[in-house]
Write a protein that binds this DNA or RNA. Structure first.
Lengths: 145, 145
DNA sequence: CAAAAATAGTCAGAACATCTGACCATCGTC
DNA sequence: GACGATGGTCAGATGTTCTGACTATTTTTG
C-alpha cells in the first residue's frame, strides 16, 4: 500500500493538509477557543446565513451534531441564530463580526497553501486539479444533487 | 460560498464520497461490525504488517487513538498483533483471513467509483487528477516527509 | 379547506472517537 | 553501560457523533 496509495487516501492527504494549515493559522492568530469540528461548520456558514440542515448536509453530519456544534459557536460568539423571515420553522445561522475577523486569516492560509501547491505542480496542473474536483462535485456531492 | 466552494471543501467532497461508497459496500456485504474510524485504520494496514505508529501517522491520529481502534479490530478478528522480529519494542499489526475476505469487496466499490468518475471526467482528466494528487502527496503528506 | 405528509429543528441519552499526560520497555549511540 | 530517542500502553478526561422521540410549521392533497 505504501507504493501505490489509493485515490481515497490521496484525497485524504490533500484534504487534511489544507484543513490543518487553515486551522493552525486561525489558532496561531489567537483564536484557540475553537475546535476543528466547529471550524468545519463555521467554514460553511453563508454570508446571508445558513440553515442548520444545510450545514449538516454540507459537513456530512446529522442535524443533531450540527446543532451541538452551532451551540458552541454561538456561545463563543462566532455565530448567532436569527429567525428565518421566510419560514417560521427554520432559523438562520449567521456570522458575527467576531467570526468575520478570522476569515481573512483562514483565507490567507489557504492562499498560501494553494501557492505552494501551484509552485509544486505548475499553474496548469493546479488549474486542472481544481477543475476536475469541481466537476466531480456534480456527481459526488450529496448536498448538490 | 455556494457559488465557489474552496479547494478544501472540494477535496472533502471527493474524499468522503469515495470513503462512503467503499464503507457502504463493506457494510452491505454483511460486515456491519466495523465502524468508519476502524475502517480508516484497517485500510492502512500493510500486507506485511504495519506498526501502530505508522498507522497513527498515516491516519493522522495519535498513537493512543490508533491503539484503541486496533484493540477493537483485534477483538472483532480483523487484525492480530504479532511481535516484530526486528524490534522487541514494536508489535506488528497484521491482517487476518477475515480481513482479507473483505478487501475485494472494498476494492470493487472503489473501482466502481473510479469508473464513474472517469466516465464523468473523461479518462484523460481522471489520470491527470490522480497524477496531481500523487505529486501533491510529496509535499503534503506528513508521514512521507 | 382540512387532513395528511413532509420539513426544520430540538431534547435526551448513549456510544464512539480523540486527546493529554504519565509511564515502561527496548533500541541506538558514545 | 549510561543516555537520549523510539514504540507502545495505561488512565482519565473531553469532544464528537449517533439513534430515537418529540414539537412546530409548511406543503401537499383529496
Amino acid at each position: 500500500m505504501a507504493g501505490e496509495p489509493s485515490l481515497g487516501v490521496l484525497l485524504f492527504i490533500a484534504y487534511r493538509a489544507m484543513e490543518n494549515r487553515a486551522f493552525d493559522a486561525v489558532v496561531a492568530a489567537g483564536r484557540d477557543d475553537i475546535t476543528m469540528a466547529q471550524a468545519k461548520l463555521l467554514q460553511r456558514v453563508n454570508e446571508e446565513g445558513s440553515r442548520l440542515g444545510e450545514l449538516a448536509e454540507s459537513a456530512q453530519v446529522t442535524k443533531q451534531t450540527a446543532g451541538y456544534l452551532v451551540d458552541q459557536l454561538e456561545a463563543a460568539g462566532y455565530v448567532e441564530r436569527r429567525p428565518d423571515p421566510n419560514d417560521a420553522r427554520a432559523r438562520l445561522v449567521c456570522l458575527t463580526d467576531h467570526a468575520c475577523s478570522i476569515r481573512p486569516v483562514a483565507d490567507a492560509a489557504v492562499a498560501e497553501v494553494e501557492a505552494e501547491w501551484a509552485a509544486h505542480l505548475g499553474g496548469r496542473r493546479m488549474a486542472q486539479l481544481r477543475e476536475a474536483l469541481a466537476r466531480l462535485r456534480e456527481i459526488a456531492d450529496p448536498s448538490a444533487k
